[in-house]
Design a protein around this nucleic acid. Structure first.
Lengths: 155, 155
DNA sequence: ATTAAATAGGACTAAAATCATCCTGAATGT
DNA sequence: ACATTCAGGATGATTTTAGTCCTATTTAAT
């Protein structure tokens, strides 16, 4: 449907959550699930997947939990999404050369290529570290809206 | 899965096929199906949909068929795809304001917005007329490769 | 050693989407 | 009348999506 699945969305939320923690923090499934509004049992599966993909590490048992395998500035949005959704191809003709025999003469093929390239560029150029910063700005902004620091006195 | 469906692909093929015909030509389902390698009965459904969407007109009965409702230079790739797939949203949070209550503080939301904008830009900027031209170039190129007009003599 | 706390992993499921096929009906030109 | 086309509905197999639930395994603390 040309739309990312809940898996991808939830994976990004989880990684973003971990990226916002102080280094060394271990995050629990239940904690991430609640904070990021993801069904707990479903998130469990996604975290497993992220561990297998090498983006996240885990420790079992009491005092266990999850933490990032790399620093937030070294994880792009694309990596987070593709870790769980697999590589993105806007059309099956892009999967690999020869996947679609029509690409030799189909003029649409190269349009998809360009569209995909532009899309990837956006996802590649955003790291988890940047997203955490963006989130802080958003928070500051909404806080300012509600309780301005210094309301300009009209007296 | 962040991939267009066969519906969308087939719709584009059908419209492209009609765009490549001389104006006034009526195209038959069976003819389009064969030329564009689309299952005949499936294409039938897609053409119905395209008629309802207003991109294509039809005439029933003997000597009937399909033809474009607008000129090829007035139909963009995006219009062709969205006519059959409905509006594209890379993530459900983009469907409409308030669809996702997290968008107030979620820093990923605006990244999706930008990604979608860039993607749409590519699809918006390609008309069926241009695609027909592109196809002609591709044909000319592959023909040249196989039978070069004037092979450089080495004698 | 026991136990409580966590993740790992497999089995299962309901609902929806995908990718079609087939048949009947309606319109239209000859 | 008849052959030719599209219109529209019913049906269906398969896959994907979006989960849940239960048991096993690992680990830290007591």
């Amino acid at each position: 449907m040309l739309q990312i699945t809940r898996d991808g969305e939830y994976a990004v939320r989880a990684i973003l959550h971990m990226s916002a923690q102080p280094v060394g923090t271990l995050c629990l499934i239940s904690e991430i699930a609640e904070a990021q509004e993801v069904p707990r049992s479903y998130l469990s599966k996604i975290m497993q997947h992220l561990v297998k993909a090498g983006l996240v590490k885990s420790r079992r048992g009491a005092r266990g939990g999850f933490f990032l395998a790399r620093r937030p500035q070294e994880i792009t949005l694309r990596q987070a999404i593709e870790a769980i959704e697999g590589p993105i191809f806007l059309n099956i003709c892009l999967i690999k050369k020869g996947e679609c025999h029509r690409d030799e003469f189909c003029p649409v093929h190269q349009v998809w290529q360009e569209a995909q390239r532009k899309l990837m560029e956006v996802l590649d150029n955003k790291t988890m570290a940047q997203l955490v910063q963006d989130a802080e700005k958003l928070k500051g902004f909404s806080a300012k809206k509600r309780t301005p620091k210094k309301p300009p006195s009209t007296l």
